[in-house]
Nucleic acid binder design. Sequence first.
DNA 1: CGCCGGTTTGAAGAATTTCAAAGGGAGTGG
DNA 2: CCACTCCCTTTGAAATTCTTCAAACCGGCG
Lengths: 245, 245
Amino acid sequence: MNDVSSERLAPLVRKLASLGRLSQPEIDAVKALPITIRDMKAGQDLVRQGDRPSQACLMLDGMSYRFKIVGDGARQILSYHISGDIPDLQSLYLVSTDHTLSTLMSSRVAFIPHRSLHHLIETHPRLGGLLWRDTLIDGSIFREWMCSMGRRSAPTRVAHLLCELVVRYRNAGLAAEMTIPFGLTQINIGDSLGLSVVHVNRVFRDLKRDRLISVSGRKLTVLQWAELKRAGDFDPDYLHLAPEG
Amino acid sequence: MNDVSSERLAPLVRKLASLGRLSQPEIDAVKALPITIRDMKAGQDLVRQGDRPSQACLMLDGMSYRFKIVGDGARQILSYHISGDIPDLQSLYLVSTDHTLSTLMSSRVAFIPHRSLHHLIETHPRLGGLLWRDTLIDGSIFREWMCSMGRRSAPTRVAHLLCELVVRYRNAGLAAEMTIPFGLTQINIGDSLGLSVVHVNRVFRDLKRDRLISVSGRKLTVLQWAELKRAGDFDPDYLHLAPEG
DNA sequence: CGCCGGTTTGAAGAATTTCAAAGGGAGTGG
DNA sequence: CCACTCCCTTTGAAATTCTTCAAACCGGCG
């Protein structure tokens, strides 16, 4: 492989390295994955509910999110995905997709054939374990969101989500200090947390008023991290950031 | 192995067979897993938040459930587990457990050393794939619960949960007709769906009044399945019951 | 400049929670 | 075997959070 294609998969290598130590042959095998790269605009579907994808999506840049539409037409957002994430990794073993994956902003996405990933897992079982681990962390995040939606107040939910985004961006090396890219609309936040836009707006207003956060353009800055964590009942353990073992 | 121990793992074999076709050597390998069986009373912890288990729990009989306690002391129930389920399978690759697993009623539980499971996965990669698939279905159920808690009304949530229990019991061959074992208290249901007991009680009263369900002792009977499904906005796709492929 | 999607605000309404207390039912110990 | 106890269920009433509706505002983009 040449330098260009090897650099292209750097976000994936970094992500896997954050899940567990990688050997050089493993790194090489990951970098050798055949990929197709596409630049996508905001609001485009990557996988639709009911699809049976034959490739997995790897986020290189930008952000994507998963959601379901319930009976009365309301939308529930399930997760957000940044550089290095493979949002539909579960499609490797769950042939029929039960939700939709879309870009939240203009994004660069790599498509990796399932065939290649299955082969990678067979030849490098440890990498398979790391990918498995990644899907388990995905599930852990769902569990935490369930706690938020079931048992936390609206202000706590919003603060919690912001904390999660900050920690994940920082962990991926995509945030300087306490400022993160912030492409979510308040509509998105409402659909993530089971709240109406109006209410999200009011909670946001209070968070700004209390100088916990500030938003300017598409950047969000945490002004008082300890306070925001407390307000959001946030404990990062569920993100399982410490590598395996 | 003798007949006794092979029979003991029948729930696991059946579960795996429902996830994908098993070869005879694979069945034999599963049956050969070394296990410790314990009979447990209701309300005992199997794994606690923060634990680093060295074995996985397999439900043989009874029911267990997972939950988290949030900052203000409220409890969020995350899932229920019946015969054949391995509720803490994620501990194979997520060393630190982020929630608690307890018995909901008196149960028979088998403990399988992680070491044995890791060895099984190495020697029988296809079984590894099925177990992975099982953890992915776990995640899919979380996603559906998120939809319920975020975007469904209380009556819909309750009906949805009942539908799920019915389908899962029937799929596991543990329910005759439309009657299932029903050990959940209304407190449990509230903590599962993000509702107060009082409100659960009122919703339940309506479901009985409208003759969608009836409860007697520790059995629940669905009187009008089509109606209950509709009331619960229930589509079983998310359970991914059709075997892989 | 005008449009479009997102944000913000006010006011009224609905769903659900909280508080309080009484009523069952199953197991336990006397 | 009965009474007691504990937990769960049930009901009423008041309180609260959050939603809905409606409309104005704002900012970026074509």
